[in-house]
C-alpha cells in the first residue's frame, strides 16, 4: 500500500491579477486565491496512482489559515488526508526555508504513516521557481525526479518507480529507487470534474493544522525570512516594447508592404534552403 504525499500551495490567480500602475505592486484583492494549477495535477496523479496500486493520498501545504480552502479543493480531487503547517515563523520563506519547513512536516507525517512517494507540482504560478520539490528531496535524501510527464510503473514490493522525464526535445525514461520525489508537468494528466461524494466530503473536511511548536527538531533559524538566503530587493513592472507601425490599406496592400519588408531580409529564407519554396 502506497502512502503518497502531494505538496500543494494556494496562490493568487496571476492570470487575472491587476497591477497598481502608480505603485507598481500587485493588487492582490483583484485576484482570487486558487489551488496552484500545477498542484492540481500533482494531486490528481497521486489519486490515480492510489487507484492503480492502492494506498492513501495525503496533501500538505504551508500557508496562512485561508489556505485550508486549497486543501479542500484537493479533497474534492480525491485526496484522503490534509495537513497544513501555519505559523508566523514561516512567513517570508524563500525556497530553501520552504523546503526546510515542509520537510519537517513530512517527517511528522511519516511517523503517522511512512511515506513512499512525494509529488510536487512543476512550479507555482506566483513565485514560479520550481525549486521547492528538489529541495525537499535533498533534505529527505530521496532521489529528485523533476519534469515528470508520465509515471510508467511503480513497484511497491521491489521499491522502484519508472517515469518519463521531459527534456527540451523529447523525454528520458528513468528508474529510481523508492521512496522518491517527483515534480510533475501539467501534461501528465487531466483533472476531471469532482464527484459529488468528494465535494460533500470536502465541504465538511477539516485538515490537521500544525504550528512550529508541533513539529520536532526544528531549528528556528532555518525558518521564514531568517532562514532565507535570498531577499527580494526591488520589484518593478516589466517594460513592454513600444508599438511600431501599423500597415495601412486593404488586405492586398498590407501584405505587399509586408512582403517588401520581408524581402529585405531574403538571406534568411535562402539559408533554410527554401524548404517549401518552389524554386
Amino acid at each position: 500500500m502506497l502512502h503518497i504525499v502531494a505538496c500543494i500551495k494556494q496562490v493568487p490567480d496571476t492570470k487575472i491579477i491587476k497591477m497598481n500602475p502608480k505603485t507598481n505592486t500587485m493588487d492582490r484583492a483583484s485576484a482570487p486565491a486558487i489551488l496552484n494549477p500545477y498542484d492540481a495535477h500533482a494531486v490528481e496523479e497521486a489519486v490515480r496512482l492510489k487507484k492503480r496500486y492502492g494506498g492513501t493520498v495525503s496533501v500538505l501545504t504551508m500557508g496562512p489559515p485561508p489556505a485550508v480552502k486549497a486543501i479542500k479543493k484537493c479533497i474534492e480531487i480525491g485526496a484522503d488526508e490534509g495537513y497544513m503547517i501555519s505559523d508566523r515563523a514561516f512567513a517570508g520563506a524563500d525556497t530553501l526555508a520552504t523546503s526546510y519547513a515542509l520537510t519537517k512536516a513530512i517527517e511528522k507525517i511519516s511517523q503517522i504513516k511512512p511515506v513512499d512517494l512525494i509529488i510536487c507540482g512543476k512550479m507555482t504560478i506566483d513565485g514560479d521557481t520550481g525549486q521547492v520539490g528538489p529541495g525537499i528531496a535533498r533534505r529527505l535524501d530521496m532521489p529528485p525526479l523533476t519534469s515528470v510527464n508520465k509515471v510508467k510503473e511503480i513497484n511497491v514490493e521491489e521499491g522502484y518507480a519508472i517515469v518519463h522525464r521531459k527534456l527540451e526535445d523529447g523525454y528520458e525514461v528513468i528508474q529510481s529507487t523508492m521512496p522518491c520525489l517527483m515534480s510533475v508537468e501539467k501534461e501528465i494528466n487531466e483533472v476531471p470534474y469532482s464527484s459529488m461524494t468528494n465535494m460533500l466530503k470536502a465541504a465538511r473536511y477539516q485538515p490537521v493544522i500544525w504550528a512550529v511548536a508541533d513539529l520536532e527538531d526544528v531549528e528556528r533559524t532555518q525558518l521564514g525570512l531568517k532562514g532565507s538566503p535570498t531577499i527580494v530587493s526591488k520589484v518593478w513592472a516589466p517594460t513592454k516594447p513600444s508599438g511600431g507601425e501599423m500597415l495601412e490599406g486593404d488586405a492586398a496592400q498590407q501584405t505587399e508592404q509586408l512582403l517588401d519588408l520581408l524581402l529585405k531580409k531574403k538571406e534568411l529564407f535562402a539559408v533554410k534552403g527554401g524548404s517549401g519554396v518552389e524554386l
Binding site: T95, Q131, P134, R138
Partner: peptide, 23 residues
Amino acid sequence: ATSTGKDLASAVATDLPTGLTAD
C-alpha cells in the same frame, strides 16, 4: 534554466546551502 540546469541548481543550493535565484 533548462530541465537539467534547474534540477541540478536546486539540488546543489539545498546541499551547500545557499540562495538560488530562478529564471
